[in-house]
Design a protein around this nucleic acid. Sequence first.
DNA 1: TGTTTCACG
DNA 2: GACGTACGTGAAACAC
Length: 939
Amino acid sequence: MAIGKGHHLHLIDGSGYIFRAFHALPPLTRKSDGLPIGAVSGFCNMLFKMIEGNTGDDAPTHLAVIFDHSSKTFRNEIYPEYKAQRPPLPEELAPQIPLTREATRAFGIACIEQEGWEADDLIATFAEQAKAAGARVTIVSSDKDLMQLVGGGVEMVDGMKNVRIGPEEVEEKFGVGPDKVVDVQALAGDSVDNVPGAPGIGIKTAALLINEYGDVETLLERAEEIKQPKRRQTLIDHADQVRVSKQLVTLERNVPVEVALDAMEVQPLDADKVLPFLAEMEFRTITNRIAEKLGVEAPTISAPAAAPAGEAHAPGPAAPEFPEIKADAYEIVRDEAALQTWLDRIYERGYVAVDTETTGLDEMLAGLVGVCLSVEPGEACYIPLAHVNGTGDLLGGAERSEGQMDFAQALEMLKPMLEDPSILKILQNAKYDLKIFAREGITLAPIDDTMLISYAQHAGLHGHGMDMLSERYLDHKPIAIKTLLGTGKKQITFDQVKIEEAAPYAAEDADVTLRLWTLLKPGLVKERVTTVYETMERPLVPVLAQMEMHGIKVDRDHLSRMSNTFAQKMAGLEDEIQGLAGRKFNVGSPKQLGEILFDEMSLPGGKKGKTGAYSTGADVLEELAAQGHDLPARVLDWRQISKLKSTYTDALQEHIHPDTGRVHTSYSIAGANTGRLASTDPNLQNIPVRTEEGRRIREAFVAEEGNVLVSLDYSQIELRILAHIAGIDALKQAFRDGLDIHAMTASEMFDVPLDEMTPEVRRQAKAINFGVIYGISAFGLSNNLRIPREDAKAFIDRYFERFPGIRKYMDETKAFAKEHGYVETLFGRKIHTPEIGSSGPRAGFAYRAAINAPIQGTAADIIRRAMIRVPPAMEKAKLPGRMLLQVHDELLFEVPADAADDLIGTVKDVMEAAANPAVHLDVPLVVDGGTGTNWAEAH
DNA sequence: TGTTTCACG
DNA sequence: GACGTACGTGAAACAC
C-alpha cells in the first residue's frame, strides 16, 4: 500500500541515539565475554517501545532507522574542516555500532544508510516525501540540527527522555521558528560540528539579528546598518564564512534515495529473527517479554541467571526477572487470619517491604490510614485501618468504612514483627514511616532505605524519590497519588479514598520498594559505597527522626510582636518610597521597581537576564544607593524587613505544632548532592544571624523552663579540610598553632607582618580563602570584593604562588572528575558530576562544583558521623538533654541548666574526634561552644 | 509553573 | 576566544 494520508512515519536517528545512550546509560557488559553492550541494550529497548509502546495515533505505520555512513559528504568539499575535530569513537562504543544495525534488522525494521550522505539529510528527504504524500512524520532524535524540519506535520521526539519537540520547543531553543533555524545556526556556528559561524555571535545574538532582518542574506546585505560597531565589523569581515556555514547546516531534502517509503511499512515481529539476536546479546528481560508476546518459548540464555549483583544498577535487560506489575494482583487484608498468614510469610523470609498510607505529608500531624507489606515482587497486600466513608461534616468525623481490621488489634499484631531485630524492614524514605509508627508506639528496626541506597550510589546523577527510581530502574510509572486524591480545592485525604481504590496504589508502593531494593542493594558493594551507606546514611535515620519529633520551642508572642513592628515600619517605608517615586506601585514587584528606577527615573544600570527584565538585586540597589539615591536605599531597607516578616516572623508562627508548642522541621537526607542535610517545613538552617535585626528572630528560639540551649560549632571546618586535602603545610601549621587563619593568609600573600595587619587586608584574604573553597574565578572574586577583574586575577595568581598545593588540588580534582565522572570525599562518599564533559558555561559550573564537593562533602560527612555518635555518648555519660538541630557545622542542644557544662564536655569531644578512626586529619578539628536561654545567646 | 530575590553555612 | 560564573541549599512573592 502506498504511503499517504492517515499513515504515520517514524524516522529514528540511529547514530544520534546510540551516542547519547552510550553516555547516558550505565556501562553494561555481556556476562559471558565482557563485550560492552550498554548502548545496544538501550537501543533495543527503544525499538521495542517504539513498536509496542505507541498506541492509537502515535503508533507508527511506517518505521525506519537511519544511520550515518562513514564517508565524506558534500559538506567536506565546501568546508574541509567540517566535523574534522571530532574525537575518535570511545573504545567501548566502537564494537556496538555494527550491533545496532544488526538489532534493527532483527526487529524487522528498515535499516537505512547511504554513501555520501549524513543520516540527517536522509531523514530530511524522507520526511519531505512523506509530508508531500500527506502522512504524519515523527523524527526520533534530540539533535538540534534536525529541528529545522519541524512543523507542517513533522515533529520530533527525544527517544531517551520521551519529550516531544514541536515548533514551540524549537523556538525556545533557538529564539526563532523552525524555518529560521538554519539562519541562526549559520550565524552562531557549532563547535561540535566545527561550523564556524560568525565569531563572537552566539545563539541569542543570532536570534536577535534574524528576528530583526529576516534571514542571513538580508542581514549580510544590510550589515552596515548594525549599530554595535564590533558586531557590524564581524559580520562584514566574515560574510562568506557565514554563507558557507549556512550551506553546512542546511539539510538536503532531495537526496536521490535508494529506498522507497513504502518499504518502511511496519512488519510484525519475526520470532525466528529477533529472539536469537536478543539471546545472543544475553538480554534476559526483553527476550522473555517478546517471547511471551509472540506466544513462543524464550530461548535459554547461557549466562548465570541469579546474579543481579554485577549489573544491578543497570536498567532494562540487566534487571533480575520480575513479574509484571499488576494493580489487581494485590490482596486486601481485612481480618486477623489473613494478617497472620502474611506475618508467617514475613518470618519465613526474614525481610519485608513496608509502606504506610497517611492523611497528609506532615509526619507530626498525619494520621495512619493503612499499612502495605510485600515479601516478593508482584506479591503485596494492603491493610486498611482507618478509612472512612465520605468526607464527614463540621460536627464530627465521617463514618468508618466496613471491612477493616480493628486499628489497635492490627497494630498489636504488627508491632512484634516491626520491632523484631531479626526482620529487616525495607522502606522508601524510612524516616517518614519511622515517625508515623513512632506516634503509634512502634519503634521500627532494623531498616533499609531504598532512597538512601540510591543516594549513596548515585548522588548527583538523579533524584531519589520513588517515582523517579521506579521509572528509571523498573521502567514502570507508579500510580500517581493525584489520581486518587485529586488536586486543589476538591482534594481529599487518603482516609476518604475507597479501600478498593486505595489498595492497588498503596500495595504497589510496597511492591516497587521491594523491587528497587532487590535491584539497588547489591550496587552498594559494586560501587564500593557500603561503608558510606552503613556508617553515614542508615544510622542517621533514627537520629534525625528523634530530633525532628522533639522539635524546638518557639516563643510565639515574641514573633508576633516583631511582626507588628515590621508591619508598621514597612508601611512607613512604602509611603516614603512611593513619595520618592512620585506614584503608587508595588514595592515588592521587581518588575515595577525596575521600571520606576530605570525608565521613569532614568538611573544608570541596564537590562539583564534572559527574560529581559531589569535586575534589581541587592548589589544593583546598593550601587545606586552608594551614588546617593534615596529610593533604592529605602527599598533595600524595605526588602530586608519584608523578608524577615514573611519568611520568618509570620511563617514560623504557622509552624508551631498545636500540641507540642514546638517547631518540628524535617531534614532531607538525600536532598543535597554533597552529603549535606537540607531542612524544610520550615527551613531552620537559614534563620537570620548576620544583621542585628535578623538576630532578634533567633531570640524566639528558646529553651524550656529550667533548661538552656547549647550551641556547638566547628571552627573553620572547610578551610581545615582544604588544608588537609590539598596538603598545604603553611595552612596546616597555622591551624595547629591556633592562628587567625585569614590574617595569616593575608600576611603570607601581601608580606604584611601579623601585628601590622589591617582589617581591610584581612577581609580580602578571607574572601580569597572562601573563593578557593568555591572553585575560585577572577570574575567571582572581583564581584565579591568589588575590585577590577585584573586585580582579582593578580590576587589569585599570588595565592597560587604562595600555596602551590591549591592549584595542584584543583587540577587533580578536575582531572579525576573528568576521568571518572564523580569526585569523592575523604570518607568515600561519591558525588557524581555528569555535566563535567559538557561545553560552554555549563563546564565552568561543573568544574567549580567538582572542586567544592569533596570539601563541603567531607565536612558534611564529619558532622554526620558526630551526630550518629552523640546519642550513645550522651547515654553513656548519663546526660539528660536532647540534640535539636543541625546547621551544617553547628549542633544545637537543649539541656537542664545544671548539666550544660557536662554536655559541652562530652559532645565537644565526640565532634572533635568525629573523623577518627576512618580518617586521620593533619589538622585539628576545633569546636566552639556557647550557652543561653535562647538561640541568639547560645550561638 | 517559573523567575527573582534573599536568608543561611 | 567568548560564553557568564563564585559552592550548597529552601521559601516567599510576583508574573504569567
